[in-house]
Amino acid sequence: MSYVELIQLQAEQVFGNKAKAEMWLNQPKNELGGSTPLEHAQYEIGYLQVRDALERISHGYSF
């Protein structure tokens, strides 16, 4: 499974459905240098950063 596929599954778990996850994953984020979480998650280091962001969101912090 690719990093992008893993991040999509994790986002669906955090946001509770695929539509909300896709919306978040496809919006550029200043915290990621202006790239979308999906673009950022293509490589391991970016995947880890997006995974950490999703973890913070699941605990009630904004990103």
Score class of each variant (00 low, 15 high):
Asp52Glu: 14
Ser35Val: 11
Gly34Tyr: 01
Glu44Gly: 13
Met23Lys: 05
Ser35Leu: 14
Gln13Val: 08
Gly16Lys: 03
Val14Phe: 05
Ala19Asn: 08
Arg56Asn: 11
Glu22Thr: 10
Tyr3Gln: 12
Ala19Thr: 12
Asn30Ser: 13
Arg51Thr: 07
Lys20Tyr: 01
Gly34Glu: 12
Gln13His: 03
Leu9Ser: 06
Gln13Arg: 00
Leu38Pro: 03
Lys18Met: 06
Leu6Met: 08
Ala11Phe: 03
Ser62Gly: 07
Lys18Ser: 15
Arg51Cys: 09
Ser2Leu: 02
Trp24Glu: 13
Tyr3Ile: 07
Arg51Lys: 13
Arg56Lys: 13
Ser62Met: 10
Ser62Ala: 09
His59Leu: 11
Val4His: 03
Val50Phe: 11
Phe15Lys: 01
Val50Tyr: 10
Ala41Ile: 02
Leu48Pro: 00
Ser2Met: 09
Glu5Cys: 01
Phe15Pro: 05
Leu38His: 04
Tyr43Val: 04
Asn26Asp: 15
His59Asp: 03
Asn17Pro: 06
Gln49Ala: 13
Ser62Ile: 12
Ala19Ile: 10
Tyr47Ser: 08
Val50Cys: 02
Ala21Asp: 12
Ser62His: 10
Gln49Asp: 10
Glu39Asn: 06
Ser2Gly: 08
Met1His: 15
Tyr43His: 04
Gly34His: 02
Gly16Trp: 00
Thr36Tyr: 04
Ile7Gly: 09
Ile7Val: 15
Asn30Gly: 11
Tyr61Ile: 06
Tyr3Asp: 13
Met23Ile: 04
Met1Asp: 12
Asn26His: 13
Gly16Phe: 00
Ser35Ile: 07
Gln49Gly: 04
Arg56Ser: 11
Ser58Asn: 05
Leu25Met: 11
Leu38Gln: 07
Asn17Met: 04
Leu25Thr: 03
Ser58Arg: 01
Lys20Gly: 01
Tyr43Ala: 04
His40Val: 02
Gln10Trp: 01
Ala53Gly: 08
Val14Asp: 15
Ile7Asn: 03
His40Glu: 12
Leu48Gln: 10
Glu55Asn: 15
Val14Asn: 09
Trp24Cys: 12
Leu6Ala: 13
His40Asn: 10
Glu12Gly: 06
Lys20Asp: 15
Arg51Val: 05
Ile7Tyr: 05
Lys20Ala: 12
Gln42Glu: 15
Leu6Gly: 10
Gly16His: 03
Tyr3Asn: 15
Gln8Asp: 05
Ile57Cys: 05
Tyr43Leu: 05
Leu25Ala: 08
Ser58Ile: 01
Gln27Met: 11
Pro28Gly: 09
Gln8Trp: 00
Ala19Gly: 10
His59Lys: 14
Leu38Phe: 01
Ile45Gly: 03
Gly60Met: 07
Ile45Asp: 14
Ala19Met: 15
Phe63Val: 12
Val50Gly: 10
Gly34Met: 04
Gln13Pro: 00
Leu54Asn: 09
Asn17Thr: 08
Ala41Asp: 05
Phe15His: 02
His40Pro: 02
Lys20Thr: 00
Leu9Val: 05
Lys29Asp: 02
His40Ala: 09
